[in-house]
Design a binder for these strands. Structure first.
Lengths: 66, 66
DNA sequence: ACTTTTTGTAAATTATACTTGACATTAATG
DNA sequence: CATTAATGTCAAGTATAATTTACAAAAAGT
């Protein structure tokens, strides 16, 4: 699954640490999600989308094989 | 986290087993997600939303404490 | 009433999300 | 160049998602 959290952060000028604090997770969680190391829960996806005022689909995208 | 999968299924007239097969998970996974027993991954949420031609936010909703 | 389909649930196991702490690397600033 | 901020990554542990098998209960159909 792809995501564009880095771009969304750049638009809002937010660091990984700041985003992490906003949605109450560790900075590493944001870092690993952003780098595609693992797929977040729907709760986190909804919270992240909420922070950026976009839909979940605007941030997370399924790949071909998924 | 709340969800309205049951309603979405009713609209499309799809059983839990059928939905499960469509997105390649077990029927129990659909059942437990639908009954709110656990929160699905974002991959599953995206797939479910795709089946019903709606956004993730149209199916899954954060609660107050989340 | 009987049969079949659908749904609910439980226990055990496996896979993976998430945390914490720590350190290395890179980017930005003085 | 030196310092600080930001990001990348690793390892170990905890929490929880997801699977399988199996059975019970409820709903729907004949």
């Amino acid at each position: 699954m792809k995501n564009n959290i880095k771009v969304q952060r750049a638009i809002k000028n937010i660091t990984q640490a700041e985003l992490a604090e906003m949605i109450q997770v560790s900075r590493q969680t944001i870092n690993t999600i952003e780098s595609g190391k693992y797929v977040p829960s729907t709760v986190l996806a909804l919270k992240i989308a909420k922070v950026f005022n976009v839909k979940v689909e605007d941030i997370f995208e399924l790949e071909e094989n998924e």
